[in-house]
């Protein structure tokens, strides 16, 4: 449970556009331990998906690197060795566009098996059926269907089965449930948790749903405008958030009962919106919205400090490595 399977070091990904350079991911470092579910949280435009896409090789990092089991993986997909493509798999956000409407589910699931030579021709059908059973879809009913005729939740199940096809060890889940309705979400989350146990998988779970995060992750990485705000174990994160942005996020969770209401920090009201990543504010990128803004915040960008064991924060309030009194 303690071995680090993925280490991201000072990862930067800039996009050059006509409006200027977009700093989608700016000097991000974190690590994911074997067997855990690491949550990556942030508003839209905070760079979560860019990190996911960089890890699987859709983008090449502008600077910095990512290590997977000690191997440098900061390369685009066509430069990656096949063995690596087999180990790191991704489930995309929109299952509608991630499955080819012109191919049957059987064909879709066979592709990774063929490419990675997982099994020989005669066993392939068996393996496809096994994968479908793994995601709780009866193979006889689904194998020859087109993804067009099945529901969104079922599509995402197929996408998960496809990701699992070559027996990966690391799964990047890019908001796998955000496009689905709530009843289906629960089913998929349960399935993912079950699969993680059975297959000894490590997840990088990207989401903006904090309640979901609380239930399934071991550790949380909070991002704001391409930078890390806070990294903490999930329990610690919900009980004792450090960063003003984290507090703002937590206080924005809608609650049903008073009990829940009392549990979350309430001194922070969310205001403003995330700034444009093309025009990042000077100093700490959060200072425009920060309720605890200090004079230094608009001048200097804080660095990440470890305030408690495993609990990192990037804020001037903690610049001496201690909690402010």
């Amino acid at each position: 449970m303690s071995e680090e399977i993925l280490t991201v070091e000072n990862l930067k990904k800039y996009f050059v556009t006509k409006q200027g350079t977009v700093r989608a991911v700016d000097k991000v470092s974190f690590s994911v331990k074997q067997g855990e579910t690491c949550g990556l949280v942030g508003e839209s435009g905070s760079g979560k998906t860019t990190i996911a896409h960089t890890l699987v090789g859709i983008y090449e990092p502008t600077e910095g690197r990512a290590l997977f089991k000690g191997q440098n993986i900061s390369k685009v997909f066509n430069q990656r060795p096949k063995a690596l493509k087999k180990e790191i798999r991704i489930v995309f956000q929109d299952p509608g566009s991630s499955l080819n409407p012109r191919r049957s589910i059987k064909q879709i699931l066979e592709l990774p098996l063929k490419v990675h030579r997982i099994c020989n021709d005669s066993d392939r059908v068996e393996r496809v059926m096994e994968l479908l059973r793994m995601v709780e879809l009866p193979p006889e009913d689904y194998m020859y269907k087109s993804p067009q005729v099945i529901g969104g939740g079922e599509k995402q199940m197929v996408a998960i089965a496809r990701a699992l096809a070559p027996n990966p060890s690391f799964l990047v889940l890019d908001e796998p449930t955000s496009a689905l309705d709530v009843s289906v979400q629960a089913k998929i989350i349960n399935l993912l948790m079950q699969l993680q146990q059975n297959l000894n998988l490590t997840y990088l779970f990207i989401t903006h749903d904090l309640s979901l995060m609380r239930n399934i992750t071991n550790r949380v990485v909070i991002m704001y405008l391409g930078k890390i705000s806070e990294v903490a174990p999930t329990v610690e994160f919900f009980q004792n958030p450090f960063h003003p942005y984290t507090k703002m996020l937590l206080s924005s969770i809608p609650t049903v009962s008073d009990e829940e209401e009392n549990f979350k920090p309430k001194e922070v009201i969310s205001r403003g919106e995330i700034a444009s990543p093309v025009n990042v504010p000077s100093g700490c990128s959060f200072h425009l919205r920060c309720p605890q803004k200090m004079e230094i915040c608009s001048r200097a960008d804080p660095t990440v400090v470890e305030v408690e064991a495993d609990h990192l924060v990037r804020c001037h309030l903690f610049s001496d490595g201690r909690k402010p009194t």
């Binding site: 096949k82 566009s97 080819n100 592709l111 990774p112 496809r162």
Partner: peptide
Amino acid sequence: HEYFVREAELTGASKAHILLREILPNCV
């Protein structure tokens, strides 16, 4: 740019597969 093409690329499928099996059927 569709994700199913991305997925095939990330899986490591050949260019011939991507062009003829993933993209072409959608042009039919």
